[in-house]
């Protein structure tokens, strides 16, 4: 492995921001789930399915890449909700649409995301982010 990262993660790819969401619509990212993703070996042997939490992880990385406020100290504080709607398989592309809002009466940010593959919606996910210093 020649690449290095500054954080640890179970996923191998990096979502590409195709729309930063600075206009009217949602932010948008896209990432190819390579058949070589390391999680497939054990999830599951002989029948690779991309783990639901790895879909959440790509949404998490997509959120950090499209944060509407500056600063590099934002961190995932909660998975507020997730519904898994259809499986993601090796070679699928995950497209994520992300809509940001402020959490009432706090400095936290909420990211509502819909992740889709070639097969339609894969998951609806709501994440909450807080600044590390505020915890």
């Amino acid at each position: 492995m020649t690449t290095t990262r500054e954080f640890c993660t179970p996923v191998d790819g990096t979502p590409e921001v195709t729309d930063p969401g600075t206009g009217e619509g949602p932010a948008r990212t896209v990432v190819l789930v390579e058949p070589s993703e390391k999680v497939f070996a054990g999830h599951y042997p002989g029948f690779p399915i991309f783990p639901g939490v790895c879909i959440i992880e790509y949404v998490h990385h997509s959120a950090l890449a499209t944060l509407p406020e500056p600063g590099d100290d934002w961190m995932l504080a909660a998975i507020e909700s997730t519904r898994f709607l259809s499986p993601v398989f090796p070679g699928n592309t995950i497209t994520t649409e992300l809509t940001w809002s402020k959490v009432k009466d706090s400095d936290a940010l909420r990211c509502k995301a819909v992740a889709s593959s070639e097969r339609g919606k894969s998951a609806q996910i709501k994440l909450r982010f807080e600044r590390r210093g505020n915890r």
Partner: peptide, 9 residues
């Protein structure tokens, strides 16, 4: 795994 709500870190 159908869904999760309010998983706090």
């Amino acid at each position: 795994f159908g869904g999760v709500s309010d998983v706090e870190y």
